[in-house]
Simulated scan of single mutants.
Amino acid sequence: MTSCLIVDDSKVVRMVARRILQDLNFACIEAEDGKGAMDVCLDKMPDVILLDWNMPVMNGIDFLRELRKADGGSEPVVVFCTTENDMAHIREAISAGANEYIMKPFDRAIIEAKFSQVGVL
């Protein structure tokens, strides 16, 4: 089963994403900020990461940069999921190593489409 780490400081967003991803047969792990996500990844690297941008402690872009430098950190497919929708943010995310970008609010169809595009579905 493919593992997906859901990183978002909103419990509601994590719950909605988990429900959708479990329906799509992902084993889900959650973290509420980039620091917690980094701890999860250093323990056991997930296959896919659904990543929020704006979080306390460590934001999404800083987490992504750290992840890509970590041992095995080039492996996970990273899909940003955020309210930041301007081209500058999207370019920054892609150049930092994100594979794809989802706008909030999202639904099952959007997650299915993006996860298919990056080859994890």
Rank of each mutant, 00 (worst) to 15 (best):
L21C: 10
L21N: 02
L21S: 01
Q22Y: 06
Q22A: 11
D23S: 14
D23G: 11
D23T: 13
L24C: 09
N25R: 15
F26M: 03
F26T: 01
A27H: 12
C28N: 04
C28R: 01
C28P: 00
C28M: 03
E30R: 03
A31S: 12
A31C: 09
E32S: 13
E32F: 10
D33P: 09
D33W: 12
G34C: 10
K35F: 12
K35C: 12
K35G: 14
G36L: 06
M38K: 08
D39Q: 14
V40Q: 12
V40N: 07
L42N: 12
L42A: 13
L42C: 12
L42Q: 13
D43Q: 15
D43K: 14
D43T: 11
K44D: 14
K44A: 15
M45T: 08
M45N: 03
D47M: 03
I49P: 00
I49V: 15
I49Q: 01
I49W: 01
L50R: 00
L50M: 09
W53Q: 12
M55V: 03
M55F: 03
P56S: 07
P56V: 07
M58Q: 12
N59A: 04
G60C: 02
G60W: 01
G60S: 04
I61M: 13
I61Q: 04
D62V: 02
D62H: 09
F63E: 04
F63C: 02
L64G: 01
L64C: 05
L64D: 02
E66R: 04
E66M: 08
L67K: 04
R68F: 02
R68L: 02
R68T: 04
K69H: 10
A70T: 13
A70P: 01
A70V: 05
G72F: 03
G73W: 05
S74N: 15
S74V: 14
E75C: 08
E75K: 13
E75F: 09
E75Y: 10
E75G: 08
P76R: 05
V77S: 10
V78R: 00
V79T: 07
V79W: 01
F80I: 11
F80T: 06
C81W: 05
C81M: 15
T83D: 09
T83A: 11
T83S: 11
E84V: 09
N85I: 10
N85G: 13
M87V: 15
M87P: 05
M87C: 06
A88W: 14
A88Y: 15
A88N: 15
H89E: 07
I90V: 11
E92P: 04
A93F: 00
A93T: 04
A93N: 02
A93L: 00
I94N: 00
S95K: 13
S95R: 12
A96F: 04
A96E: 06
A96K: 01
G97C: 08
N99M: 05
N99G: 08
E100A: 11
Y101E: 11
Y101D: 11
Y101I: 11
I102R: 00
I102M: 08
K104A: 06
P105A: 14
F106W: 05
D107R: 13
A109G: 09
A109L: 10
I110L: 09
I110P: 00
I111S: 03
E112L: 08
A113Q: 15
K114S: 07
K114V: 14
